[in-house]
Structure formats: C-alpha cells, structure tokens
Amino acid sequence: MKRVVFVHGGSHAQLATLADPALAPYRITPVHIRTLVAAELADADVVVVSDRLRPDLLIPRSSALLACLDRGATVVLFGENSVGTWLPGVREDSRPTVFWWWRTGEDHRIRLREPDHPAWPYFAERAVRWHYHGVLEPPAGAVSLVDLETVTGERDGSLLYIDEISTPGRLLVTTMDPVYHHGSGFMPGATQFLYSALLWATRT
C-alpha cells in the first residue's frame, strides 16, 4: 500500500477533510506545515499539499516537496499555494473567480483538453468544472487537462495540469481548492475532485 502524506495548516476545512471516513482506507499521514521537515516525506509515495496554505510557511519548506519529485514520488498541489513563486518553470496569474455560473447562466469558460490522456478515467467532467483561482502556464512537456478561455475564445491558461517530464516524479497542479470546499461543505464538484485526485495519485 502506498504511503500518503497530507500537508496541511490546521484550518477547519483541512481538519474536516482529514476526518472524512471516506479517506480512511488511504491511511493518510497528516503533517502540519509548521513542523514539516524533509525526513517526514522521505518514504512517502504520494504527497498531497492542501490548498490555501500560508505562503510564509509553505515557501521556505518547498524544497522538501521538490525533493520528493526528484526521487520519483507523486506530488499533488492544490490551489492558492503561490506555486508561481517556488515551483520551477511555472507562471501563475490571478483571475476573477466565477463562483455561481450554474445559477447565473454565465459561460464558465472552462475547457477540457487531451481527452485521451490516461488520467481522464479518474476525473469526471463535474469534478474539474466548478471553480478556480487563477491560471497557470506549465513547463514545456507538461500536459494541461483543463484550460480557461478568454471571453474571445482564446486560451488563457491551465487550471489543471500533469507534469511527468520535468522531474523523475509525477506532479499534478491545479488552481482549484477542493480541500477548502469539501471541508466547508459547499461547492458542487469539489468533493469529487478531491476523491478523484487521490485515486489517480495512488492507483496509477
């Protein structure tokens, strides 16, 4: 069984997610970002970095996460974690969030890409089309599975990408924040995305 480490900051949503009985089979090891040291991740097969961690705590410890990729582990990086400031080769730009497009009738402008990618059997459309915080421009060779378009129909940037090229490990990065919404009990699709990401990380 793969060892899964969940890096969190002790927020109500993060603790509620860790207490979710549906995640019990993963036997997740929680690690608080304040106490994170490289040794705690040394034998982790999968490292999940919760969304919305404090940048002043995450960025100084980011080298421990990058070391996991260098040794071949899988790292899942959820949104609002300032990845543009510490993840090599990534540009991050903020965008206004369309919160309730299914109620207002707005075009969410979220577009699914690469339909033949092996990750797609793990992610239903509803799981990846609900919410976002900004766009990313991934490194060359990474595969964007979900893009945001501009109002004129041009590609604006990635909302979800997988990088299996830049390091010996596998990296999933998104600007969505499923832990916050799952733990807070609102936002359609967030729970499904969280569960799907864990399945992808541990079964592939």
Rank of each mutant, 00 (worst) to 15 (best):
K2W: 10
K2D: 10
K2V: 12
R3Y: 06
R3A: 13
V4S: 00
V4F: 03
F6D: 07
V7Q: 00
A13F: 04
A13S: 04
Q14E: 13
A16G: 00
T17R: 02
D20E: 11
P21R: 02
A24V: 05
A24I: 07
Y26M: 02
R27N: 15
T29C: 12
H32D: 14
R34H: 12
T35P: 02
V37M: 08
V37P: 03
A38E: 08
D43R: 03
S50L: 09
L53A: 15
L53V: 11
R54M: 15
I59C: 01
S62P: 05
S62A: 15
S62F: 09
A64L: 06
L66E: 04
C68A: 04
D70W: 00
D70Y: 02
G79S: 14
G79L: 12
G79H: 10
S82T: 09
S82D: 14
V83S: 09
G84S: 02
W86L: 04
G89Q: 01
D93G: 10
S94N: 11
V98G: 11
W102E: 10
E106H: 00
D107W: 08
I110K: 01
R111H: 14
P115R: 05
D116M: 12
H117Y: 13
P118M: 15
A119L: 15
P121Q: 14
F123P: 06
E125R: 08
A127V: 09
A127G: 09
V128T: 13
V128W: 05
R129P: 03
R129V: 10
R129W: 04
H133D: 12
G134R: 02
L136R: 05
A140D: 05
A140M: 07
A142T: 02
V143L: 10
S144A: 14
V146I: 04
V146D: 00
D147K: 08
T152V: 14
G153S: 06
E154D: 13
R155H: 08
D156L: 11
L160F: 09
D163N: 08
P168H: 04
G169K: 00
G169L: 00
G169N: 00
V173P: 01
V173A: 11
T174C: 12
T174E: 09
M176I: 02
D177H: 06
V179I: 06
Y180G: 07
M187D: 13
P188N: 13
L194M: 06
L194F: 05
A197R: 06
L199A: 15
L199F: 15
W200G: 06
R203H: 10
